[in-house]
Design a protein around this nucleic acid. Sequence first.
DNA 1: ATCGTATTTTAGGCAAACCTAGAAAATCTT
DNA 2: AAGATTTTCTAGGTTTGCCTAAAATACGAT
Lengths: 225, 225
Amino acid sequence: MVEPTMSQPLSSSVGDYLKAVWGLAGHGVAAPKDLSSRLSVSSASVTEMLRRLQELGLVEYERYRGASLTEEGHAEALRLVRRHRLIETFLLEHLGYPWEEVHEEAERLEHAVSDNFTERVAQLLGHPDRDPHGAPIPGADGTLAREDSRPLSGAPVGDRVRILRVGREDAPALAYLEARGLVPGRVLRVEEVRALDGVVTVEDEDGVSHALGGVLAASVLVQGS
Amino acid sequence: MVEPTMSQPLSSSVGDYLKAVWGLAGHGVAAPKDLSSRLSVSSASVTEMLRRLQELGLVEYERYRGASLTEEGHAEALRLVRRHRLIETFLLEHLGYPWEEVHEEAERLEHAVSDNFTERVAQLLGHPDRDPHGAPIPGADGTLAREDSRPLSGAPVGDRVRILRVGREDAPALAYLEARGLVPGRVLRVEEVRALDGVVTVEDEDGVSHALGGVLAASVLVQGS
DNA sequence: ATCGTATTTTAGGCAAACCTAGAAAATCTT
DNA sequence: AAGATTTTCTAGGTTTGCCTAAAATACGAT
């Protein structure tokens, strides 16, 4: 049993890499190419950093293959994700940020706040288990609720579904959805799924129809309602 | 008229130096030695950084003498001070931080938050003009209220005074004062000022007496009441 | 005025993250 | 299975911010 004492405060770069590996691969192996593009960094930089992360015992790295998180790396990544999602929720609920702006601000803040701050915010918010995008917030103990959802793009026509989560964080997509009220909690009826291009048409609770491009529809996660 | 376009977001180190010059010298010249000790950095580092700051047009620097802020540097320093003090106030009032812990957390946060964040916090707080230590909060327009106060150490015996501000930010001193209720707003009667060591004895509104060491008394700023 | 102490600067290094360019390995195509 | 393409790695460089050690300057005291 290796107790992760987390001696040195990790640099923010390190955290960004860990989150990226986590986001890309979860428990699996993240390819350097994907890290490179997600972090907007050259592949040379990725190679270098993966080496260092292995040094630090945060990832398992094999040349030409990619990296996966160690237990310690995984815990650290989840800690950051928790921070990020709590901060997002806070920005939205207490500072009145628009939905699509919270991500960027949280991205910077999550590297500056202490655990103390994080837990005080969690308390202020009443320990929410979802962030504004519907993403689950890991617990302070490093557990992450398993979620049972499917992409809207794969929903059977005629089904009533509830939006559980929007798996995007780029402002334009979020603004688009927000403007149409397509936010977590909203209940929809699937009207049509065009096989050709994957465009999904849904009807909302007010009887208004909305068309979502294939990529976007795939990132909207729903539950049967 | 040089319009300070503030192109690149300045690194947090740069900001720390600017704040230090401002805190040490205001509009005057800050000595490298003082910067070195305030920032806990070698004097070689100070020399190097002052050079860079001059490059950036943020300070006027003369070798072997020290640095003073340019107009632009001064504005930038005040912007940071505003952030810092607003964040402190927020931590105290909304997250329940103890008085003596806010400084350290704010120190890290002030480099991560955007102007947008800052102004939203200001609004949430109702645009306060003093932080929890009683220090004036510079306006968004870069103005700083002039304050009319004297150190408690120089108050005439018998005077009734009100604590306006506590000019310290180290946790032990703040905890000491907090524990005795010697916080901004409190009204005191000066009972004795010992010439020998500068120890000041005051009586608070509840009739309780407190003795303050010379150094501490000098950092408690008061107004005639 | 000069000597000794303080302070400040110079010189030379180090570590973290990043980069480009080109070599090497892996993968895909036919 | 060879060649072409893509991906990854290696080598060498840059910037920022810090350091120590030693040289230069300034200051204070006799």
